[in-house]
Design a binder for these strands. Structure first.
Lengths: 278, 278
DNA sequence: TTGCATGTAAAGATCCTGTAACCGAGCACA
DNA sequence: TGTGCTCGGTTACAGGATCTTTACATGCAA
């Protein structure tokens, strides 16, 4: 590792792995303009956000269930009870970033919306990029105060990962992972696909991996060692020769079925890779 | 930490942690439009806000010293280095609500401003009332979760924390904590997770920690010393190497698992002891 | 088999933390 | 006004923990 690179890392003081902790942003948009939604969807998809488009208002309870980070509404879609709806949503979900994005309005309307709890008011037509920035700003502010651990514990195989404690456990016994080991383990468990070394390095270290760097291999070895000690009958990290590593808890011997984690919402349904090692 | 900032801080002798509860909102506006300022001043005065009008940019350290809740800037007043200035302010004071209120702009400019950390962008001319709502919305987000400030006494291990007295006790003997020490202890006890130094610093001091600042370590040492003196058989503050500190009362020696964090909540609800000193 | 890619282990190199000593600014008090 | 005290904050150092590098062994694919 070059000195400059290392300095750059410690200088930023916040490792990429830690800020990546909260996975994808969840956003709901209540709007009926197909063009608007299309543009937004494209942009958000590129950013890796989880977007759900709603063509009409849903109940507040339904919103609660969606566990959103942000909500964008066009008041004209809500119809008559829009102000009350806005108020109820903001009252019920104080941690939700609410952005009103609607057609031309009066100052009084905007004032009313903001007073009721909205975080921002955008006037249509507007540029998707700007709207996204506004959403990001609102979420950013909410996040900063959201100290409480909204990071769920995650159980995979016999191992439990506790992001709030920066540690993994087998039962109640700590694996005694170092910070970097934990970050790599956490990264691996967050995806079912094969991760290339360069990818792992970049996301954990925060900058490009130098050619021939074996750090990832060494850490994977340490991880495997500790995982084996804590949970001898399971295999967790699998090597894909010439490609990289993949995380999948498997009971050794015979069975090689994927054991779906039980605790916490792991919603990793999308990219399950059936192709498997030998 | 720069000397100016230090002076500013110690001079005012009031830290953000103590200030937050109930005080007038402090707002600074960097603008040169007399009419705009006049209208704003009248409105804010009626609301009981503490406004300081600045006709040109002040140093970031000076802003730190003002202990503001919000900052409104007209980029045209800042001149050439405005983006860098904006960025520096937002980085240094993550808890500050920053609103850019300036003349006509392009989407790209607004996007840039928001990405650099601004909370909102208002285009002049604008209605004072609306601007105030936007400021309030930004501050509201910041304030929401700031220190639940439970006034109840809290017993952890052999220690009792009395927010009303700004002091901690072992039985009826005071630990003789200083203000800073108490604030850090209180922050630590309010969370079961590992807190990174940057988080601790930001929440107690009120602005971003400088790289290489060891203040948190030093105060943790002082805290540990006093905790050890008052309660020799217990460990309270645990170091997570490469990450930060975590508060958890544990009996030394034999049983180290007094409070075994299960997979879910670590509930410290059980041991709140209201019974207290004279 | 050969040529890489990966596993393994150990040795520095580097970083992180605990610790103590120090300095300057406020404050109380004579 | 000067003195001594406390407090917050800085700095330097030492020891230990962690990370990186390197070398070699092993395994996979062509």
């Amino acid at each position: 590792m070059s000195l400059e690179a290392r300095d750059a890392l410690t200088a930023t003081a916040a490792s990429p792995a830690s800020q990546r902790a909260h996975s994808r942003l969840r956003l709901a948009v209540v709007d009926r303009d197909p063009g608007f939604m299309q543009v937004l969807a494209n942009r958000l998809d590129a950013l890796g956000w989880d977007l759900r488009a709603l063509s009409s208002a849903v109940t507040v309870d339904a919103l609660v269930g969606m566990r959103l980070n942000a909500l964008v509404v066009d008041l004209s879609v809500l119809g008559p009870g829009s102000w009350e709806y806005l108020e109820r949503v903001c009252a019920r979900l104080p941690g939700l970033a609410v952005i009103v994005c609607t057609g031309p309005s009066s100052v009084a309307q905007r004032v009313r919306g903001l007073r009721l709890g909205a975080d921002a008011w955008m006037t249509k037509p507007c540029h998707a990029e700007e709207l996204i920035c506004v959403i990001e700003a609102a979420i950013r502010r909410h996040r900063r105060n959201e100290m409480p651990q909204m990071e769920d514990a995650l159980s995979v195989g016999q191992i439990t990962i506790r992001p709030d404690l920066y540690q993994a456990y087998s039962g109640d016994a700590s694996l005694e992972l170092t910070a970097r080991e934990f970050e790599i383990l956490q990264l691996l468990t967050q995806s079912d696909r094969v991760l290339r070394r360069e990818e792992i390095y970049e996301r954990v270290w925060g900058y490009a991996m130098a050619h021939g760097d074996r750090s990832v291999d060494v850490f994977v070895r340490k991880l495997r060692q500790k995982l084996r000690t804590a949970s001898p009958d399971w295999s967790y990290i699998h090597t894909h020769f010439g490609v990289g590593y993949r995380f999948a808890p498997e009971v050794d011997g015979g069975e090689q079925q994927l054991v779906t984690p039980g605790v916490g919402e792991v919603g990793r349904e999308s990219d399950v890779t059936p192709a498997l090692v030998g």
